Computed example of a mutant assay.
Amino acid sequence: MATVEEVARRQRAIAEQTAQRGHTSVAQLATEFAVTTETIRRDLKALEHQGAIRRVHGGAVAVEQHITTPSQQHPAGVHTEATHMRHRQAIGLQALQFVPKPQAEIFIDAGATTEAFATVLARHYLGQRWHVVTNSPAVAKIMCAANIPDVSVLGGTLRGHGKALTGHTAIRALQRLRADVAFLGTNAVESDRGFATSSEAIAEVKREMLLRARHAVILSESFKAHCTSEVPFASFEEVGTVITERPLPASPLRCLRDANTQVVIP
């Protein structure tokens, strides 16, 4: 068993590597430090609590560095949840242009960014004839609170801390449906694999939504381009549009352009 000093030394090294590289993966760190992936996940949890890194699916990203003025209260280097919410809201506002008017069949995936989009969509509901289908109880609640009358929730098994409905019931329901547009979240944007998520069960629902929609829109904060995740669910060629809050790194951006995938930035 490692001593307290050894754990602290390893965690300092992880924080330094993440800051230098911009991102690190659990698998990569486990190999480098010759420990289990469970040990690395505990390290990342501790480092996030200290504000040294931000955990993402499959690894960690460096906290965003920014300049503060004396009047600002947040310490430099802390990427707050309020910042992420602003990013997601900006992405959601851009996504509105992809909703057909005045009638639309819409798939909305589960996830923090798609929930933010649902909030924006709800604010812009003025009696449009929208049929919203979702695998997210949270998205359904947002839609119903806005008095959108035609909202369908897929059945299935709750995954991801109760945020996503998955499984055979959800898949069978989607196979009977079609949508004008599907709004999907992602855990990672990977140059070599495309878009990826945390489990096969979640990936299956995303793939089915994508398959059944005329147009697929990925809603993703830009830091996801520094992440890796376990299960790919779509290639760049299969997605029509990616909306993010700031320019992506050169490698995934080049892949998206090569695939003729539209990239929208507020």
Rank of each mutant, 00 (worst) to 15 (best):
H87M: 11
A116C: 08
Q50H: 12
L93D: 00
D109W: 08
G51D: 08
G111Q: 01
A122S: 13
E105G: 12
H84W: 12
Q72N: 09
L47R: 07
E38L: 11
V78I: 15
T113Q: 08
H84A: 13
A62I: 06
T69H: 01
H66G: 10
E48F: 04
G111D: 10
G59L: 04
T80D: 06
I40F: 06
T31V: 05
F107S: 09
V99F: 06
T36F: 02
T69W: 03
Q89W: 01
A46E: 12
K45T: 14
T83K: 06
V35M: 10
L47W: 08
E105T: 13
P75A: 12
I91M: 03
A118F: 02
G58W: 05
H57C: 01
A90G: 13
T68D: 05
T36D: 15
R41T: 07
P100K: 11
G92N: 03
G77Q: 02
A95L: 06
P75N: 10
E115D: 08
Q103M: 06
A76Y: 00
G92T: 02
F117K: 02
F98S: 03
I67S: 11
G111N: 11
R86A: 13
Q103W: 00
K101R: 14
G59I: 03
Q97C: 03
I67V: 14
R41V: 04
G92S: 04
G92C: 02
A46L: 06
L96S: 04
L44I: 01
E38T: 11
T114K: 04
V63E: 15
T83S: 12
S71M: 10
L96W: 02
A52N: 00
L121H: 00
G111K: 10
T39E: 08
F33S: 02
H57L: 01
H79F: 14
K101T: 14
L44C: 07
T68C: 09
T80G: 09
A46V: 09
T68Y: 00
T37Q: 15
P100M: 10
A95E: 03
G58R: 03
P102F: 00
E48T: 09
V99T: 13
F98G: 04
H66F: 15
V61D: 02
E64M: 05
E81H: 14
I53P: 04
Q73M: 14
T69C: 01
R54Q: 15
E32R: 12
E81F: 07
D109I: 05
A90P: 01
S71P: 00
